[in-house]
Design a protein around this nucleic acid. Sequence first.
RNA 1: UCCCCUGUAGCUCAAUUGGUAGAGCGAGCGGCUGUUAACCGCUAGGUUGCUGGUUCGAGUCCAGCCGGGGGAGCCA
Length: 474
Amino acid sequence: MTATPAVHTIKQVLSTTGCGLGDAVEVRGWIRTRRDSKAGLSFLQVHDGSCFDSLQVVAPGDLPNYADDVQRLTTGCSVVCRGVLVESRGKGQSVEMQATEVNPVGWVEDPDTYPVPAKRHTFEYLRDVAHLRVRTNTFSAIARVRHCLAQAVHRYYHEHGFYWVHTPIVTGSDCEGAGEMFRVSTLDLENLPRDPSGQIDFSQDFFGRETNLTVSGQLNVESYCLALSKVYTFGPTFRAENSNTSRHLAEFWMIEPEIAFANLDDDADLAEDFLKYIFRALLEELPDDMGFFRDRIDATCIDRLEAFVESSFERMDYTDAITLLEKAVAGGHTFDFPVRWGIDLQSEHERWLTETHVGRPVVVMNYPRDIKAFYMRQNDDGRTVAAMDVLAPGIGEIIGGAQREERLDVLDARIAEMGLDAEDYGWYRDLRKYGTVPHAGFGLGFERTIAYATGMANVRDVIPFPRTPRSAAF
RNA sequence: UCCCCUGUAGCUCAAUUGGUAGAGCGAGCGGCUGUUAACCGCUAGGUUGCUGGUUCGAGUCCAGCCGGGGGAGCCA
């Protein structure tokens, strides 16, 4: 009576960790391809998501269910395989399983209609079958990269003394900045309650007020920063902007650290150190997946990340960036949008700075106050604020951050100047009344980070189930 | 929201000045093979996104609608 073989992941089997050649093991997964040999055996490529590579399972023709089961296996079927690990006699893998049992678990009922057969597909098509696209090489690799980077984010902050703060998903609308938001309501859309003046009566809504999905955890995380010193959020955020680009999602994940007793330079230091840390982790932990992206998606992605973690970010003042752009124009370069001090940098300007002029990430700092948000700290020159954007080649703005205005009188003046109602910012102003300190933070778009790291061209393909205008299937 | 491109077999694409809708891949069957982007043969598979218009005749031209992609703006 042979003992039941121990269950192993394909990652363990291929790296012979916890098992070795000659061991009897069990693996569980899905068929990628089946190749029959009339020598009387079949080769099954089995993947289970534990690593990039699949395991070659050699099913001999004398298995009792060879004709009834093994030869009917098609791409997508799930199986439990038992057998002995042996050195492969073929090329393409060093270890394979000589199977003693191949047990189908779930069949593909009609191989002709299986949405992801073993052939090339466009990413556009695969978005229509997002529930199955993760069975492909590309999307399982993306899932592992996403996990790796998310773990690295938490590890970095944990190791550096930051606390992860769970800021709310549903927020009162008062303290949010500009930008379209998704309303959260339990009111009956067919029969909205009205007050005497005919306005919708939100006092009858679930929260007794207007509420929306968060567009940023920043304001909330500032409050925790001013008690815990170093904090961050990492969670979903929602923008109802009708943005149709390869860089925007209606639902995306954002990382927002906030540090107390800190200025804009500290903020830029943090951004640089943090990004290098997570990319270094990715290069070290997922060489196989990154190798796939290099070979099939973007030949330069590994070189780019290696250069990224080795070189220092270029830092320049907005004013100097404008001067550089003006010199480029004087030298014959043409932009669609004119360059002058005071404009917000257009995508073409940012691309020129990071791709053409510098060739690596650039931190642009100290923007004109008139084009930035009310909470950004005013500089002594009276015309700029301590804001920064990190621009990366190929993806554009990846980080937006600022030192926050910690002086109540200056903040109030700014609120009034922008036509906002100070009453709406009561709790936020309290943070300046009671033990205020200089503090700063930034927001990093997680999907843009993944796209940058892998060379994937569209953020819709680096999140499992993308939400975009007119698209929320699954 | 604006500009451009686009919609033909399960998927990726052909189809000349408007004139009988094709191929590759995938799938099924057979052959061959310790195979691995396999290879060879056969077979199945289509109201050409929808609605209307022009025409003897529309995949092709026109209008509207719907979907997809790229860019811009906004931003992360």
